[in-house]
């Protein structure tokens, strides 16, 4: 039984919850896995700090909350700073370079940055930075089938924005692939 805990952090309005929803939906509807999404509610979901938690598993998720996430998608520095110390030993931290300044992490933790907001702005809508992050997450972690995530995006975003969102997804995905192969090369060279 394999279980992966994912934390997505950012500000209200960045699409943090949607990002978590898409991961959960991709896993449970299109990738034959089980996924439970929980989120922080209340004033924090209405503007300031905001987070979503997804547990993805091969079998039914019993304990619904995330305790030691092995994956973090950080879309704000505050969110990153708040949660970085609760990460699992060999965690993967994915962050938006335009918004997060990562600090030193203990060995074993892998940190990957992407200029998600800038990419989204280049695509014409800053609002799709969460989908850029989602593509980046898909490529780097390989936790979910790429098509499953794309399908989740396609079936969930507002009508008429499918193309833009899929482009954003691809942008993040391609960047993730490149970054991974660069890192792999770097490791081989070393």
């Amino acid at each position: 039984m394999s279980k992966t805990e994912i934390k997505i952090t950012g500000f209200g309005g960045q699409g943090v919850i949607l990002c978590g929803y898409l991961i959960g939906k991709a896993a449970s509807i299109y990738d034959n896995k089980h996924a439970t999404l929980t989120q922080s509610f209340g004033p924090e979901a209405r503007g300031s700090a905001c987070s979503a938690q997804v547990v993805v598993s091969d079998s039914r998720v019993l304990y619904p909350y995330v305790t030691h996430p092995s994956i973090m998608l950080a879309m704000s520095h505050d969110g990153y700073a708040t949660h970085k110390n609760s990460m699992a030993d060999e965690a993967v931290i994915l962050y938006d370079q335009d918004l997060v300044k990562p600090e030193e992490h203990k060995a074993g933790v892998k940190v990957y940055g992407i200029p998600a907001t800038r990419f989204a702005e280049e695509l014409g809508r800053k609002i799709v930075s969460n989908i850029v992050m989602l593509g980046f997450f898909s490529a780097v972690t390989e936790l979910l089938d790429r098509e499953a995530v794309q399908k989740a995006v396609e079936t969930s975003v507002p009508k008429g924005t499918e193309e833009l969102n899929l482009k954003a997804f691809d942008k993040g995905y391609q960047y993730g692939l490149e970054l991974k192969s660069e890192k792999a090369e770097a490791v081989t060279k070393a």
């Binding site: 959960g24 449970s28 089980h34 439970t36 999404l37 929980t38 989120q39 998720v61």
Partner: peptide, 10 residues
Amino acid sequence: DECVGHMTEK
């Protein structure tokens, strides 16, 4: 309860 109410699953 709030946990089940706000928990998203298939």
